[in-house]
Write a protein that binds this DNA or RNA. Structure first.
Length: 251
DNA sequence: AAAGGTTTCAACCGCAATGGC
DNA sequence: AGCCATTGCGGTTGAAACCTT
């Protein structure tokens, strides 16, 4: 079967959006919402395909878009999440309010990828000086996640027996209340009784990781369980320092 | 000043996923 | 179950801006 083109290309504008086009799109969506993207350009009077309109809105015209340089915290978050999720830009973007997947992808491809590559460490620094842009460069985290190179080195140097022994050791801690009390600080215990300190972790709702070393152990352990969608969501939150304690029952 | 090289990022493309019929 | 339309995602492109020589 011949694939249908995404839009009629004849007579439609392509390339850079003109300010007038932006205004038409913003005005239309402000009044009617975007509804059906394919039908939108015709209804709004734009000589663009629906796909182009959607992209322009999502990546540039949305009112909640945060423009400007990424902060150090945002960069660190992206680096951590990328190590966890790979090139799942849309998932990463959900953890950075106001940032788009396209923006994050561009940042990664032009800067962060080089940052995490030990053989290209100084490239952006020199560019930064050239461009006089205020992008910070470092990789500091309260709960450090190993770089891809480090992970590779780790996998090369450790044998399966020692890994299994470590997992068994960590697994045994999951049901150890003191282990969790040491690692976590309760953020939201409203759904449980105030005597939560003496209850099991399953009675609590949400906690912050206050002991990075233990947090790292937990992360290693949970990662070893594999990652379906729910597990992935848990790991994302965990990597950002927050634990949904109800999810612990999954492990 | 200008030519050539490099970087950035908005926009495009093609494919996969999803949902309705 | 299968087809089709639509949406969303990630990879890629190319024009513009910037830098170096």
């Amino acid at each position: 079967m011949v694939r249908a083109p995404c839009c009629e290309k004849e007579g439609l504008n392509r390339g850079q959006w003109m300010p007038e086009e932006d205004k038409i799109l913003v005005d239309y969506i402000g009044k009617h919402g975007h509804g059906n993207w394919r039908a939108l350009p015709k209804q709004a009077g734009l000589l663009r395909c629906g796909k182009s309109c959607r992209l322009r809105w999502v990546n540039y015209l949305r009112p909640d878009i945060k423009r400007g340089n990424f902060t150090k915290e945002e960069e660190d978050t992206i680096i951590q999440l990328h190590q966890l999720l790979g090139n799942r830009w849309s998932v990463i973007a959900t953890k950075l309010p106001g940032r788009t997947d396209n923006e994050i992808k561009n940042l990664w491809n032009t800067y962060l990828k080089k940052q995490t590559d030990p053989f290209n460490t100084s490239q952006r620094e020199s560019n930064k000086k050239k461009n006089n842009k205020s992008v910070t460069s470092h990789m500091v985290s309260d709960m450090p996640v190993p770089t891809a190179t480090e992970q590779q080195q780790q996998s090369q140097t450790s044998d399966h027996n020692s890994v299994n022994a470590k997992e068994e050791s960590l697994s045994s801690k999951i049901n150890d209340e003191n282990f969790w009390l040491e690692a976590l600080s309760i953020v939201d215990s409203s759904a449980s009784s105030s005597s939560s300190s003496s209850s099991s972790s399953m009675d609590l709702t949400e906690a912050e990781i206050v002991n990075p070393a233990i947090g790292q152990q937990c992360f290693d352990l949970f990662s070893s369980y594999g990652t379906d969608d729910d597990g992935m969501e848990f790991l994302v939150n965990f990597s950002m320092g927050v634990v949904d304690l109800e999810e612990l029952s999954l492990f």
